[in-house]
């Protein structure tokens, strides 16, 4: 990507620790955290509270990427899924450590901390969450 690394430092609490937030008005949980609740808007101002998410959820839909971006070229074919976390938010991530044939809608998964991509051989390495089948 080649962006200044500060952009990625900002996202460390979410990408490394699965930190979301909750609207103090309607109790909906968001990931990534939002400045304001899009349902309560001004009623949520100043009432958004940090929430630690478990990283557990299930597959809502998925695809197998056969033609990937440069940073992911050596990984193809790899699965990407939308996961509905048990606290409610839906997120996009890779599914790892299982056969492609095991992946289906409804599959229960949990997050695992992995290397996501790197800026070539000498650039910054970016880490974050991927998902594996629940034991």
């Amino acid at each position: 990507m080649g962006e200044a690394v500060a952009r990625f430092w900002r996202e460390i609490p979410q990408r490394y620790n699965f930190m979301g937030n909750k609207c103090g008005s309607c109790e909906r949980i968001f990931f990534p955290p939002r400045e304001a609740c899009p349902f309560c808007r001004r009623k949520s101002m100043g009432k958004m509270q940090e929430v630690q998410l478990t990283g557990k959820g299930e597959v809502v839909t998925y695809t197998i990427i056969h033609v990937g971006p440069e940073e992911f070229e050596e990984q193809v074919p790899y699965p990407i899924a939308i996961i509905k976390l048990e606290e409610g938010p839906q997120i996009t991530g890779q599914i790892v450590d299982c056969s492609i044939d095991d992946i289906h809608i409804g599959l229960k998964v949990e997050s695992t901390f992995r290397r996501i991509q790197a800026e070539g051989y000498t650039g910054a390495i970016y880490y974050g969450y991927k998902f594996k089948k629940c034991e």
Partner: peptide, 19 residues
């Protein structure tokens, strides 16, 4: 929150198709 994790643009529409 999508592309960073390896989702491509065709991949995103593919996820609509799978569902």
């Amino acid at each position: 929150w999508e592309a960073f994790f390896g989702a491509t643009f065709p991949g995103i529409y593919a996820m609509i198709a799978t569902r």
